[in-house]
Every structure is written in C-alpha cells, then in structure tokens.
Design a binder for these strands. Sequence first.
DNA 1: TATTGTTATACTCTATAACTATA
DNA 2: TATAGTTATAGAGTATAACAATA
Lengths: 145, 145
Amino acid sequence: MADLPGTLTDRTAFLLQLALGRAQAMGEEVLVEHGISGREYGLLAVVAHLAPCSQITAARTLGIDRTTTVALVGALEQRGLLDRAPDPANRRANLLSPTPEGERVRAGAADALAVCDDRFLAPLDAPDRETLRTLLRRLVDPHTG
Amino acid sequence: MADLPGTLTDRTAFLLQLALGRAQAMGEEVLVEHGISGREYGLLAVVAHLAPCSQITAARTLGIDRTTTVALVGALEQRGLLDRAPDPANRRANLLSPTPEGERVRAGAADALAVCDDRFLAPLDAPDRETLRTLLRRLVDPHTG
DNA sequence: TATTGTTATACTCTATAACTATA
DNA sequence: TATAGTTATAGAGTATAACAATA
C-alpha cells in the first residue's frame, strides 16, 4: 500500500476511497464496450426500476442535482436509449422510460458489471464478500441494513 | 435506501460510493474548523510521514498528479503549514517538511477525524468495525492485507 | 407560492501538453 | 535522454441563481 502513514490507512474514509477508485476504474473500463458511462448506467438502472418516472424523481433517487440530470437524460435520449415524454397528468414534468434498445444495453451492462464486481472482490472468498456488502449496507442504511 | 434497484444496491462499487459520500461529507465538515480540506490533510499526513520528501514522492504516494500537487503545496506553504525548499542534492526537486504550526494543525485534524470515523461507524460494533477495515485493506492491498 | 425543467455561470478537480532547469 | 517543477489549457462534475411553464 505504497508508504502511506497510519494516520491515513487507519481512516475508514481513506480505505473506502482507495477501494472505490479501483472498483470505479474497473467498471468504467468495462462499460466502454457497452457505450455508456457509470453515471449513465445508474440513470438507466433507476429508470428501468421506476419507469415511468419524472426527471426529478430519478435525480433524487440517484442523489444528483436536477440541473445535472438535464444533460444526462439528453445524452441517453439522443442515443435512443431513453424515452422522454411530457406527463399528461403534470405538464411541468417529463416522464422517462427506457426504450427497448435502452433496456437491452442496461441488461448487458448489468451482466458485465456483475462479472466486474466478482473480479474486484477476487481477494475475498464468498462469505467475506457477503460480510463486506452487509457491513456497507448497514453503514449506508442503518435502518434496514 | 431510497427506492434504489437491486441492479445498483447489489453492486459493491455503488455501496462504496454511498458510504464514501457520507464519510467524506462528515470529514470535510469537521476539517473546516481546522482550516484545511480533506486533500490538504492527506498531503500534510504524507509529508509528516516521509519528511523531508520531494513533491513528486508526495504526489505518487497520494496517487495524485504532480501538476495538481503544485497548487496544493502552494496553498499550504502560503498559510505557513508546509516548508518548501530546494533539495541541495538534487536542485530540480523541492523538499517538503511540515512547519511546527503545520504539524500542530495536522495532529489536531487527525484527532478530529478519528472522532469523525467513530461517528461514521456508529451503526457497527467494535468487532464489525475492525472486520470492515480488514476486508477493505485486503481488497486494496491483497498482498499485506 | 411551489414545482419541474431548463439555461447560464462559476468553481473544483482532473488530464494533457509544453516549457525550464537540472541530472 | 529522463526527471522535477511549473504553467496553460481543456474537460468532467458539481453547485447556484435565475427564468418559463405549470400546479
């Protein structure tokens, strides 16, 4: 681990940062072949789960700003992966749904990312992997974790 | 955990991202009172550990670019927290060392961050905290972890 | 009044290329 | 030739403010 001081390697946040850096690099590399970025995968996954949903619902679910969402949705719509239509029941809102092609891309990316996760977790055996995920879920969501 | 799809919450990288987001927010908030940012704490910690060391050694240890390091070091030097002096043995290099004030700030920040870490890990008991850190270290550094 | 989408703006962080002075 | 520091520049990501349309 290079020659890092204990004042850094003892910090959980620092370890999380190192781990996330690796996991994200592996993920982005794999997603290139599917023509989307990690953030775009996140949006596709949320929309597939909640469709049809407004941009602001998708944004809040992902924890990103609604202004950032405009360009993100636009890029996916332009490539025919996402449908963006005015909501008849609330004409301020745009309803998002995946196109068939978008759903195909999302499913393919999900499979690739699962393989990626396995590779990232390679240093741990199956029970340890589950322990790690459980501990992280309890940290992130103390209630249901 | 909001209404997130399993295709996201099953991804270790996504859980790491959520956890890191919280940990970092807590850390940056605490560091404000010490007048430094998280990245500046990282640099102070590395320099305290390796002093005297060149900018490029500090950069490589932290995993940041040497061009980014220039401004980071400059900001700490300007506030009298870091000393930057040409290396007599290699006049291309700048040797970095913490000033007494820099060491005082670093130590104070380290204590505050330890408290912060405890608060972040509150949902876990002591053995689970150690398990989490161990698993993360094994992921990040399979050799010695 | 508040909400949704949008644009514009600025600020941070990062990545690349190029320059200088040293080795 | 390669290395250390520096500068300039451009790109991605984020945050804020403001506006139009709608509720």
